Simulated assay, not measured.
Amino acid sequence: MKGSLKTRYDLDKMAAGATVSVNAGDIKLRATMTDATVVKGPSLNGLALSLEKPGSFIVDYNVPNKDFRFQFMSTVRVLEKPLNLNYIHFKGDKRTTVDGTLVLDPANKVSANHLIGSGNCKLKYTYVHKGQTTFEPSYDFAKNAWDFSISQRVYGDDVLKAMFQTSNKNLGLEWSRNSKLNGTFKISASLNLAEDLKRPKVIAESTWDFEM
């Protein structure tokens, strides 16, 4: 049995969450709780249950909302290149999305995301330079706008990332660390350049994995 504990802090509130997973053959059972589940006595608020077969399907059940989310994954070959497909259906609001990633080579891939029944489609190109620097321009057809991000790996476990959304003039900076010994840690800051009062929003997140 494996578990993880995640905490999140920003200027507005402090939040925590926990995940416990159990492997049953090639099937994984998972329960996720937020601080709303345990604060002020045990409750179903913030509780979600999942059934997963890695690389095949995921079924999520939101207990308080009594809502299901279905995700199915598959891989096909297009011109001898792997195309990874995801089909995601939200039962409550009857929303279905399909996304795919075509891996051209280890350094280049193209991704697309589409909300069925709408004109909402996003395209993203990812280029990894020498395994250290990642460039990701993307285009949102619904907003008719570009987004850009660039990330740089430093000191082995650390990644610095900068993002800019042209539709809302939002600039983001992020520093993350993924360590097998100390878990994951991330600090992110965002600033809306279109606002008169330019006050950055800072969020810190940390996750610890453990076995029981």
Results as ranks from 00 to 15, higher is better:
Gln165Leu: 13
Gln165Asp: 13
Gln165Pro: 04
Gln165Lys: 14
Thr166Trp: 09
Thr166Cys: 10
Thr166Asn: 08
Thr166Leu: 06
Thr166Ser: 12
Ser167Arg: 02
Asn168Ala: 09
Asn168Lys: 07
Asn168Ile: 05
Lys169Cys: 04
Lys169Trp: 11
Lys169Tyr: 12
Asn170Lys: 08
Asn170Val: 05
Asn170Cys: 03
Asn170Ile: 05
Asn170Thr: 11
Leu171Ala: 15
Leu171Thr: 08
Leu171Lys: 11
Gly172Arg: 13
Leu173Ser: 07
Leu173Pro: 04
Leu173Asp: 11
Glu174Phe: 07
Glu174Tyr: 05
Glu174Lys: 08
Trp175Lys: 03
Trp175Met: 01
Trp175Cys: 00
Trp175His: 05
Ser176Ile: 08
Ser176Gly: 11
Arg177Tyr: 06
Arg177Trp: 05
Arg177Leu: 04
Arg177Thr: 06
Asn178Cys: 12
Asn178Leu: 12
Asn178Gln: 15
Ser179Trp: 11
Ser179Gly: 09
Ser179Cys: 04
Ser179Asn: 12
Lys180Gln: 07
Lys180Glu: 08
Lys180Cys: 01
Leu181Asp: 04
Leu181Met: 08
Leu181Cys: 04
Leu181Pro: 00
Asn182Thr: 15
Gly183His: 13
Thr184Ile: 09
Thr184Leu: 08
Phe185Glu: 00
Phe185Asn: 01
Phe185Gln: 02
Lys186Ile: 08
Lys186Ala: 04
Lys186Asp: 02
Lys186Gly: 03
Ile187Cys: 04
Ile187Thr: 11
Ser188Ala: 14
Ser188Pro: 05
Ala189Leu: 08
Ala189Gln: 09
Ala189Phe: 09
Ser190Trp: 11
Ser190Asn: 15
Ser190Leu: 08
Leu191Glu: 00
Asn192Ile: 04
Asn192Gln: 06
Leu193Ser: 02
Leu193Met: 01
Ala194Met: 07
Ala194Trp: 05
Ala194Glu: 09
Glu195Asn: 13
Glu195Ile: 11
Glu195Val: 10
Glu195Leu: 12
Glu195Gln: 14
Asp196Phe: 12
Asp196Leu: 03
Asp196Val: 03
Leu197Glu: 06
Leu197Asp: 01
Leu197Trp: 05
Leu197Pro: 00
Leu197Met: 13
Leu197Ala: 12
Lys198Asn: 02
Lys198Cys: 03
Arg199His: 11
Arg199Glu: 14
Pro200Cys: 03
Pro200Leu: 05
Pro200Ile: 07
Lys201Trp: 05
Lys201Ile: 14
Lys201Tyr: 12
Val202His: 03
Val202Trp: 07
Val202Phe: 10
Val202Ser: 03
Ile203Arg: 12
Ile203Gln: 11
Ala204Met: 00
Ala204Asn: 00
Ala204Arg: 00
Glu205Asp: 13
Glu205Ala: 07
Ser206Asn: 10
Ser206Ala: 09
Ser206Leu: 05
Ser206Gln: 06
Ser206Pro: 01
Ser206Gly: 07
Thr207Lys: 07
Thr207Val: 07
Thr207Arg: 05
Thr207Glu: 01
Trp208Arg: 13
Trp208Ser: 12
Trp208Gln: 11
Trp208Thr: 14
Trp208Ile: 14
Asp209Cys: 15
Asp209Arg: 14
Asp209Gly: 15
Phe210Ser: 01
Phe210Arg: 01
Phe210Glu: 02
Phe210Ile: 03
Glu211Gln: 12
Glu211Trp: 12
Glu211Thr: 15
Met212Pro: 00
Met212Asp: 00
Met212Ser: 00
